[in-house]
Design a protein around this nucleic acid. Structure first.
Lengths: 250, 250
DNA sequence: CGGATAGTTGAGTTATCTCAAATGCAGTGG
DNA sequence: CCACTGCATTTGAGATAACTCAACTATCCG
C-alpha cells in the first residue's frame, strides 16, 4: 500500500509540472498511501469519468440557495465551503484542496446547502448526485468509499466546532496553518518548508471566526516571533515546534 | 404519512405515561410525520431489536478514548456528545433527545470518537456497528435511512460552526433554547409553553462555547426581559417572538 | 492613471472572561 | 437527624481578548 511518489513514472517524467497537472495529481492522490484519496474514491464510485471543468479564482461554483445536483471533486487549486448569515457574517466550514470532495448534504434529503467558492483558479470534476446515490445501492465498495469521505468530513467538523467554541485566536490560526501545511505536505505540495498559500486574511478570518484586522495582528505576531514567514502568497514554516506549542497548548 | 398522535391507541390508553414509556415514544417517533425518526429508521436497518438499556444521569456511556462498537439510539432522556481538550476545555457537539441516534464517526474508518454522556437518566438501545454496516450493503432502504440521519447530523454541525464562529452569546443561547423547544415540541414533549429542561448552566456553556458565569448572566437577562421563565428545571417560553428576534437578528 | 482590494497599525470600545464571595441545594457519613 | 462536602447559581469588580473605527500604504487590474 505504501506506494511512494517515485513509483509514478508519469510524474517523474515532468517534475516541473508536478503541481499543475491535474490528472497527475489525481493519480498521485489515488496511489499514495496516507493521502486523502477522496477524488479517486469518487471516480471509482461513479466511473463515467466526467470531464474536467475550470472555474477562475474567487467565483461561486454553487451557492447555498441552489440545490446542487452534483458532488464536486477538486482536482487542482483551493476552494472553500461556507454558510453566510443574512447580515453578512460568514463562516467557512472547510477548505478543499486537490483530491478533496464536497459532498452535498442533500444527497439523501433536501436540506440547506453550503456555498462552494474558489480561492484560486480551480479544476474540478462533478459527479451527478443521483448517479453516485444509485451506485451506493449496488456496490459495497462504493458505500465504503463514500462512507470514508463522510467520516473524515464529520471529524473535521467536530474539530472545527471545538476550535471555534473553545480555542483562542492564536490557537485557531496556528492550528489552521499546521493543518493546511500537513495536508499539502501529504500531497507532495510542500517544497522544503514552504507552501503556496493563496488564502486572503479575510478568508482566514472567516475560517477562524475572527476579524480580518485581528488575523493580521496574529500573523504579524507569528512572524515577529519567527514562527512563520509569509510573503508573496508563500508561507514558510520557520519554527514548527513553536507553532505546535501555540496550537495545542494553552 | 401524516399519522397524528391520536392514531396511536397505546398512547391514549395511558396518557399520563406519555413521556415515560420508551417504547411508546419509539413508536410515536416512527409514525408521526415530520419528526426525527432516527431510532425508528435504525430499528428497520438492524431489526434484531436490541434490548433497552439504562444509564443513570451524568454518566459516560462511552468516552473518546474508546472505539465504540455500537451505534446508540436514545429512547428516553437527554444525552450529549462532546470532545474535550487535555486542559479541560470541552465542547458539546450535539444534544440527543429521544429518538436521536449517535452514529459513530468510525463506522467506516477508525477515527477519533466523541464522548457520549447522559444528562438525565437515559434509556437507550445499541446496535452493532458491523451489523448496521453489513445491512447497508444489502438494503437500499437502509442506505437511505442512515443517509438521512447523516445528512441531518451534518447540517447540525454546520449550524453549530456558524453559531460558534459568528454569533454573539445572546444569539447562541437564544438559538439553543429555540432549537430545543422545537425539537421537544415536535416530539409532543411540550405542555402549553413549558418543557422539562434538565441542562445545567455548565452544560449550556459547553454547548455555546461560553463560560457558566456568562450563561448565568444571559439567562438572568432573558428572564428579566420576560422572554423565558426558568425554575425547578422547567423552562417556559414567555415571549417567543422576542426570543426569535434575538436569535436571528443582530 | 483611477479605483477597488488587501494589509498594517494605532486608539479606544466592548463582549466576554476571571476571580471571588455568598447562597442554596443535594448527597453522604456518622 | 445533623454536620459536612461538593455542586450549581448569582452577583460584583476588574481584567483582557478580540472588536470597531479610521487612517495610511501597498498592490492589483483594467
Amino acid at each position: 500500500m505504501a506506494v511512494g511518489l517515485e513509483a509514478l513514472p508519469h510524474m517523474t517524467s515532468h517534475p516541473g509540472a508536478l503541481l499543475s497537472c491535474a490528472d497527475c495529481a489525481a493519480r498521485r492522490l489515488k496511489l499514495c498511501a496516507g493521502l486523502r484519496m477522496d477524488e479517486g474514491k469518487l471516480a471509482d464510485v461513479a466511473p463515467d469519468n466526467p470531464t474536467l471543468q475550470m472555474m477562475p479564482a474567487r467565483r461561486t461554483i454553487y451557492s447555498a440557495r441552489e440545490w446542487p445536483d452534483y458532488i464536486y471533486a477538486i482536482c487542482q487549486g483551493w476552494a472553500t465551503t461556507s454558510l453566510a448569515l443574512p447580515d453578512g457574517r460568514k463562516q467557512i466550514l472547510s477548505v478543499l484542496l486537490p483530491g478533496n470532495v464536497e459532498s452535498p448534504l442533500n444527497m439523501f434529503e433536501p436540506r440547506i446547502a453550503r456555498t462552494l467558492e474558489t480561492v484560486t483558479d480551480v479544476l474540478y470534476r462533478r459527479f451527478r448526485r443521483e448517479t453516485v446515490r444509485e451506485r451506493l445501492v449496488s456496490s459495497s465498495d462504493a458505500i465504503d468509499a463514500i462512507g470514508k469521505i463522510w467520516s473524515e468530513e464529520h471529524e473535521q467538523s467536530d474539530q472545527l466546532a471545538v476550535d471555534l467554541g473553545r480555542r483562542t485566536a492564536d490557537e485557531r490560526v496556528a492550528r489552521q496553518i499546521i493543518s493546511l501545511v500537513g495536508r499539502l505536505q501529504r500531497r507532495g505540495m510542500m517544497q522544503d518548508r514552504t507552501i503556496e498559500f493563496p488564502l486572503r486574511q479575510r478568508q482566514i478570518a472567516d475560517i477562524t471566526g475572527l476579524t480580518p484586522v485581528h488575523v493580521s495582528r496574529v500573523l504579524s505576531e507569528f512572524q515577529r516571533k519567527k514562527l512563520i514567514q509569509l510573503e508573496e502568497r508563500q508561507l514558510t514554516i520557520v519554527d514548527i515546534d513553536g507553532l505546535r506549542r501555540i496550537a495545542e497548548w494553552r
